[in-house]
Design a protein around this nucleic acid. Sequence first.
DNA 1: ACATTAGCGGAAAGGTTCGTTCCTAGATTG
DNA 2: CAATCTAGGAACGAACCTTTCCGCTAATGT
Lengths: 340, 340
Amino acid sequence: MLETSARLLRLLSLFQARRDWTSTELATRLGVTTRTIRNDIGRLRELGYPVDARPGVAGGYRLGTSSALPPLLLDDEEAVAVAVGLRTAANGSIAGIEETSVRALAKLQQVLPSRLRHRVSALQSYTLPMPSRGPQVDPDVLTLIASACRDRERLRFDYRAHSGAASRRSVEPYRLVNDRRRWYLVAWDLDRDDWRTFRVDRIEPHGPTGPRFTPRALPPDQKITAQVARGVGEATWRYRARVIVHAPAAYVRGRLPIPVEVDRCAFEPGSDHPEMLALYLGLLDADFTIVDSPELVDALQNLTQRYQRAIDASQQTSACSAHRSRHHQQHESPPESGQS
Amino acid sequence: MLETSARLLRLLSLFQARRDWTSTELATRLGVTTRTIRNDIGRLRELGYPVDARPGVAGGYRLGTSSALPPLLLDDEEAVAVAVGLRTAANGSIAGIEETSVRALAKLQQVLPSRLRHRVSALQSYTLPMPSRGPQVDPDVLTLIASACRDRERLRFDYRAHSGAASRRSVEPYRLVNDRRRWYLVAWDLDRDDWRTFRVDRIEPHGPTGPRFTPRALPPDQKITAQVARGVGEATWRYRARVIVHAPAAYVRGRLPIPVEVDRCAFEPGSDHPEMLALYLGLLDADFTIVDSPELVDALQNLTQRYQRAIDASQQTSACSAHRSRHHQQHESPPESGQS
DNA sequence: ACATTAGCGGAAAGGTTCGTTCCTAGATTG
DNA sequence: CAATCTAGGAACGAACCTTTCCGCTAATGT
């Protein structure tokens, strides 16, 4: 009866690759009678996957939308696309689905053939994704931790504390929490015998995941719950400005996919950081005026000055080598404006 | 023996939800004997899904990575995350996988329960995604066209020509081609009786897809092939600059996830538009010098001036109403710097 | 070293299911 | 009206599935 199961899977796959199939097409492709196909269709329906059928010369079978998602059968390229999409989503390009993306990514990563895994990381390294302030989180580390949480496996890593000192930790990972661009791991620290919260960007995993553990009761209070309650779809921004753009509303709407009040050209974009906002506004390719947002004005001033310095320095084109030596000198010391 | 097929599917699902399972766990969950589980594991292996098994007290079963991707069994939230991720990927946040993302999206969209579809679009509307120059393409339109191509169904839409005049078209869609941020549809125009290329952002679909058609031979020359040959993973940027950042390489690497030559702090970021590059550099929060890239210098100058104007206008805070009237006046006319 | 836990797989029994070959009926399109 | 599809019942022989036993091997922890 292995044949039957395989055939059902292939049927689902075919229905996802193309929408309409006649029973004769399916029969020849799977090497069985049309009667068997008919039986299989019945089986699929019994399994909960509704198959629409239409008689007549333009008829055929078609997989309908069920209440539950059928198994997805992806080919190599599509799998890579999904993985890459999830990684960028996990990185915070859309507010509210980071955690879920990481979970799905952990699921996919575990069954992803290694050759595809290489393609995913290769693709990502060529990417200049969502600009972000603050340190980047390695998606591999993220999925590793997510898997460990899911499978309840101990985790060992080096942790750079705020002070800069590194320490080796051994924890039981429980939750991965996302706040704007930052990721936190809530875990039971085995050495300290207490709950700790770690910043994921400071975690450097060490060795394979350890043995499985039996979960403890999570602390009831915690801001974990608050974080989780933030929920899907609730976009909250840290900064919000009111801006008037000197261009038709339709023009603005065409460039920024956010709701803009018509015939006003005034809108209130939000962002996690005023500098980000400034950059978005720069993309509008239209003049604008800021209403009541001193942070944004500051950010603009900051950027303008920095750009001006870059322009001045670059005008003297032969300055290349000189600058290079100057930078070498700076190399060991942190930049003037450190990360927040 | 529908039971058996359903059980295999559930087994796969369980293996994706958690990694390790003992046969007793699986047996109680599925309501069968452990011997049956053992048989099922054998079946899975015969189907090509390798199941690792380890004896002993810490042992159990675990789905290994096969050469082919097993069917993905996602829950609601994960499905939404995948859909959203694919949409952003299709929108061009990563070079080279746009077409594939749209294909996968079409596949997913067709089997996605309607309640999830709503959640996806709801989430997207809260998004301020990849900043982009040029008009945005509606992902719904994109997937609709992709489905029509795949299923060989006629398509009817209103098309805004470059001149602004709208016309109703009826076509046989063949290929969806992506060039940087733009999407093109290669189709056979039924009214003109010839091949035409349409810009997707100017397409407004009309009514459901029409009857199926038998495919014609695609023109052999065409730049279609060249576009397709661009292939996955080959990241080509339109502009490329050489920049020296006055900060440690580690600092830069932490903020931009791209390869940076160590101890040089010089790197060559690429982007589709010099202005984009300028904005990315602005996010580094460190001074930089441009080597040999006049376009980038121009872009910087452009931005600086625009920001300066915004700052000047915003300093006089009471200018709000004055500007508002000025903008009203401009409202019907396009902005000075139109879209390219 | 020993007990415990887990997977491995053969054999046999019994009931069920499968795929096929027929056939007729109903719906839709052109 | 003819062609083209799906729908589904009947019957038959072969194949398959689940279960119950059983002894075996391999890893782990005390």
